Each structure stands twice: as C-alpha cells, then as structure tokens.
Amino acid sequence: MTRRLFIFGLGFSGLEIAKLARAQGWAVAGTCTGEEKAGRLREAGIEAHRFDGSTALSTEAFGDTTHVICTIAPGESGDPALRSCRALLGRARWLGYLSTTGVYGSHDGGWVDETKPALPTQPRSQQRLAAEQAWRDLASETKASLHILRLPGIYGSGRSTLDRVRAGTAQRIVKPGQVFSRIHVEDLAASALKAMTREDGRVEIWNVADDLPAPNADVIAYACELLGRPVPPAIPWDEAAPTMSAMARSFYAESRRVRNDKLKRELGVVLRYPSYREGLAAILATEG
C-alpha cells in the first residue's frame, strides 16, 4: 500500500519529520513559503511546493497523499492549510496537527495531561485551539483519523540554549515557581511517525514533551557548563520584565508541567532525550 506524507510547513519541525519519514520508506512532499527555499529542498531530494496560504495547492502537487501533517501556525483568519486546501485535505485518510500545550493555560506549575480542559489565555494559544477544532470538524466530515500533537518548547541542533549562550544573549531570569516543558525535535518527529501508524478513524490528543520540566535558568546554567563558559548572574523577574518584549513576557505568564504518560504508554514512544541534559549534550557532541 502506498504511503505518501504531505507536510504543510517544511520548517524546523516539518523537515525533521520529513527526514525521518523518508528514512522509514515514506514518499514525502511538503510546502514552504519561498520559491528559493523550495528549490533548495528539491535539490536535497525533498518534493517541495511554494504555499503562502492564499491559494490552493494543485491536485498534482497533493498527488495520492494518504497522510497529512500541518505544522503551520494559524492566524486570526484561521488555519491556512484548511482555509485554502480543504477539498484536497478531505482525500487523506490520516490527519496530523501540531498544536501547543499552551492550550491548557496556566496551572501555577502543576501537571497537565490530555484529560485537562483546554483553557488558553494567550491569543496565539486561543488560535491554536480554534484550529484544533477546525481539524476535528474536517475529520468528522471525512471519517479520517486525526492526531493532535500538543507541543511545548521545541529545540534541536541550530535552535537551542547552546546557541543563545554562544551568542551572549542568554539571560537567567528567575521567576519563583516558573517551569517550562520541552521536547527535542528528533523525539517530536519520532512521536509523529508513531502516531501515523494509528489509522482507526479516531481523534487522539498526545502531549509530546520530555520527562523533566525545568526553569529556563537551570537550562542556561547547564548549557554554560557544557560549553565551559561562566554562568550569567540570575536576574529577578521584577527587574527583567520591564525591559522584555510583550512576546517574551507572555511566555513567563504561564507555568505548567506537561505529562507524557499517554505518549509512552499507548504509542510506545521511548524518548531518545528524556531531558534537556541529554538533549543539549547530544547537540554539542554532534556540532563538535
């Protein structure tokens, strides 16, 4: 049986999923916003199509796609893939959507699992929840399987705390009780591929996070240790907040720990990087 995966958004996460899927024998295609990047991806052997959300893909580009994953963030007008390509998407038998654990809202550092109600407070998380519902509506209409992967902060080679420490931009901001969950992009891709094997017509939600929520200040200190650099001084939240952008402050407005028990129990995911410690050490080893 032909297995063809189409990824809306061949960015940081989408490319990692594409790479792993190709290694496992999938036919893979996807989108990016610029023709220059699409050309580079084609040269690398990835079938890429330019897509800016304003016009639908051609039937030829979508081809005989069986599985779809959308990594594109929604906007005020909704999910661009659904808005422009709904008729094409209705032909797939499996749908995947990369959402955010921000849909749970703040839990004052408490644990959240997939049974917790979604009560987002940030506008971007509210848009994600609306997009989740739109994908649910499509799956209900077409009887396709839908898997929603709720993600915390994603990191990996070229996009990690190591890069910020090297650049001298890492600040150890300390806000009492504040913790964040994370996931290495390789573990995200492996989880997505596991989910793609479940084609039972059901809607499933998975928290894709590692085992160790932690304050950003701890992660920065460990990155400095790995790089042999001095740990920057701790900056109290009250001092840091006035100089931060609104976007940066919004990340510190919520605190929660994300449970991944269902991911490991029901999908059988074994995390390659169960915490930021293994993840950062592996990135440094690869880069070194």
Rank of each mutant, 00 (worst) to 15 (best):
A21H: 04
D211S: 03
V179L: 10
H67K: 06
V203A: 00
Y273R: 11
R182W: 10
I235W: 04
R93V: 14
P117R: 09
D187S: 05
E266C: 06
A38L: 09
E36V: 10
P176K: 13
E225T: 14
L20V: 05
R257Q: 14
A134G: 07
A190H: 06
C85V: 09
G39K: 12
Q126L: 13
D64I: 08
V219H: 03
R172I: 12
L149T: 02
A221K: 05
G75V: 10
R202T: 01
T197W: 00
A139C: 09
N216P: 04
A18F: 01
H184G: 07
S275A: 09
L212A: 14
G9S: 12
R93C: 12
I72C: 04
M247W: 07
A195V: 02
D211V: 00
W26I: 12
A56C: 08
D113M: 01
V258D: 03
M244F: 04
P74H: 11
P242D: 10
P274H: 07
T161S: 07
N260D: 05
I205Q: 00
R272Q: 14
R128F: 01
A81V: 06
V68S: 03
R249K: 14
P230L: 14
K194M: 04
E199F: 00
K194S: 09
I72H: 01
E60K: 09
S13P: 02
H184C: 08
R136A: 11
P230A: 15
A92M: 12
E199W: 00
L212H: 05
A38G: 10
R50D: 06
L212E: 15
G39H: 06
N216Y: 12
E60G: 07
I220G: 12
V68E: 02
H107P: 05
